[in-house]
Design a protein around this nucleic acid. Structure first.
Length: 293
DNA sequence: ATCGCGACCTGGTTGC
DNA sequence: TGCAACCAGGTCGCGA
C-alpha cells in the first residue's frame, strides 16, 4: 500500500518525467477512478485534452499536477488509494491488467505516456478548478511531518486535547497527513506507546517522541524507496514491501518483539489490524472498566 | 467541534 | 473440486 514515502517517490518521478509535457488525449477505461470529477469520464477527458503539465506537488498522500499556470491554473488531483500506480510507459507497452486511465502526451523524452493503474480503485483522479497552488478539495488535509512547515508544537498540543485513541489520531489526516496503518503501528512500537491510549493521556514528552518516531519511520522508508526505483519507471508497487524488512510490529503477529522477545500481538481496531508488543506497549488500564467489575 | 462506524473495491487466501 | 466467506485499508460521509 502506498504510504507517504511511496507517494513522494511517485511525485518526484512525475516531476522528472511528465512536467513540461502536453496532454494530447485522455482515455478513461473505467468510470470509477474519475467518480469525483464533476463531468464524469467524458468531461474528464475533454477538460484535460490540450493542456500542459507544469508541476508535480503533494500534500500527504494526495498528488496534483498543476496545468498551464503553476500559480493560478487548474490541476489534476490524484490519490493512489491502496493499490494505485502512476506509470510512465512507452506508448507501445502492453496494457496493464488494471489500467484505468491513459494520458497520451507530447513533449516527453522517448515518447512516453502516463498511465493510472489501480486494481482496487480506492484511488482516483479529478480536475481541480483553480487547484494549482492547493486544490480546495484537500484544503482540510494537514501537512505531513516531512513538510518543513509542519508545526510540531501545534500538533503536540492538539493531540493532547483529544479523547480519541492515539492511533486514531495518527490516522486523522486533518491533524497529520501521510501516516497510514503500517507506519502508525511502527511509530507506536518505537515510542513504546499503546495505540489505544487516549491522546489526552499522553505527556508532552511522549507526544513529542511519538511524532519524532513517525517522522523517522517515514524518512527511513523514503531513503530506501528513493533508491529502489528505476529512474525512468515511475512506480508504486501495490504489493510493495520493499520496507518490510525494517518493520518491527506491523504484520508480525506471533513473532518475537525485536526489543524484548515477547510475541507481537494483533488486535482488531477501527475495522483494521493493529500490531503491538504487549510488554513494550502496555495496554492502557481502564479505571471505569475495572470498577464496573 | 468531535467521535466512531460503515461503505466503497478487487483478488488472493482460507474454510467447509 | 467448487464456492462462499474473509481480509487487506485510505478516505469520505453520516448520525450521534
Amino acid at each position: 500500500m502506498p504510504e507517504l514515502p511511496e507517494v513522494e517517490v511517485v511525485r518526484a518521478g512525475l516531476e522528472r518525467h511528465v512536467v513540461g509535457a502536453r496532454i494530447a488525449a485522455v482515455d478513461v477505461l473505467h468510470d470509477r477512478p474519475v467518480r469525483r470529477h464533476a463531468g464524469g469520464a467524458s468531461g474528464f477527458a475533454a477538460d484535460l485534452t490540450g493542456r500542459r503539465i507544469v508541476g508535480a506537488r503533494r500534500r500527504g498522500k494526495y498528488l496534483w499536477l498543476p496545468l498551464d499556470d503553476p500559480d493560478t491554473g487548474d490541476a489534476i488531483l490524484a490519490h493512489l488509494g491502496m493499490s494505485g500506480q502512476m506509470l510512465v510507459q512507452p506508448v507501445d507497452a502492453p496494457a496493464e491488467r488494471h489500467l484505468r486511465v491513459r494520458f497520451a502526451l507530447t513533449g516527453t523524452e522517448h515518447g512516453r505516456e502516463l498511465r493510472f493503474v489501480d486494481q482496487r480503485m480506492f484511488g482516483g483522479l479529478s480536475v481541480s478548478v483553480g487547484g494549482a497552488h492547493l486544490p480546495p478539495e484537500i484544503a482540510h488535509i494537514a501537512r505531513d511531518p516531512l513538510d518543513p512547515d509542519f508545526d510540531d508544537a501545534a500538533f503536540v498540543a492538539r493531540l493532547r486535547t483529544r479523547t480519541s485513541a492515539v492511533k486514531r489520531l495518527l490516522l486523522d489526516q486533518t491533524l497529520i497527513s501521510g501516516v497510514g496503518n503500517i507506519y502508525a503501528d511502527e511509530a507506536l512500537w518505537r515510542a513504546g506507546i499503546h495505540g489505544e491510549r487516549p491522546g489526552e493521556r499522553l505527556t508532552r514528552q511522549q507526544a513529542v517522541t511519538l511524532l519524532g518516531h513517525a517522522r523517522d519511520v517515514m524518512r527511513a522508508a523514503l531513503a530506501q524507496g528513493g533508491t529502489s526505483f528505476d529512474a525512468l519507471y515511475v512506480n508504486v508497487n501495490g504489493e510493495s514491501g520493499y520496507f518490510d524488512r525494517s518493520l518491527h510490529a506491523y504484520g508480525r503477529e506471533g513473532e518475537p518483539c525485536d526489543r524484548c522477545a515477547r510475541p507481537i500481538r494483533r488486535v482488531a481496531f477501527m475495522n483494521r489490524s493493529s500490531y503491538f508488543c504487549p510488554r513494550c506497549q502496555p495496554v492502557p488500564r481502564r479505571a471505569t472498566l475495572t470498577r464496573a467489575r
